[in-house]
């Protein structure tokens, strides 16, 4: 029994923890606490842009960025650094487009974030 625990159970448990750590990105990017629903907030930003409400859009995109920073801490061990950088860059670009009230640019960046988010941790 002791041998089974030492040489079979413990190694398999450790490997299972490792696998969970590496494959947890897809699960951990989902909203788990208040203010980390990045995709939900981006939908609100899109809506505000559509309505021309740039003030709300600016506030919501900043909230989305805050949410992204929270999620980033959770998923950093299981996703590519480049994927996170790409989303971060697109979020900053979207903020810039919203600042200058560029509807086309902002929407393009949001779509890009959504696409990158879809592939995050997969």
């Amino acid at each position: 029994m002791k041998e089974f625990i030492l040489y079979k159970l413990i190694p398999f448990l450790i490997l299972a923890i490792f696998i969970f750590t590496m494959k947890s990105g897809d699960f951990l990017k989902q909203p788990l606490v208040d203010g980390d629903d990045v995709i939900g907030m981006l939908s609100l930003v899109e809506q505000s842009i559509q309505e021309g409400d740039w003030k709300s859009a600016k506030k919501q995109i900043n909230q989305a960025k805050e949410g992204f920073l929270t999620v980033q801490k959770r998923v950093q061990f299981s996703v590519e650094k480049n994927e996170l950088n790409q989303i971060g860059t697109s979020l900053n670009r979207a903020i810039g487009f919203i600042d200058v009230h560029d509807q086309g640019g902002a929407k393009a960046e949001i779509e890009e974030i959504k696409f990158a988010w879809e592939g995050l941790g997969k």
């Binding site: 490792f18 696998i19 590496m22 494959k23 061990f77 299981s78 996703v79 590519e80 650094k81 480049n82």
Partner: peptide, 10 residues
């Protein structure tokens, strides 16, 4: 190599 996902290497 943090530019790439850990999973493929594993």
């Amino acid at each position: 190599d943090i530019a790439t996902d850990a999973w493929p290497y594993w």
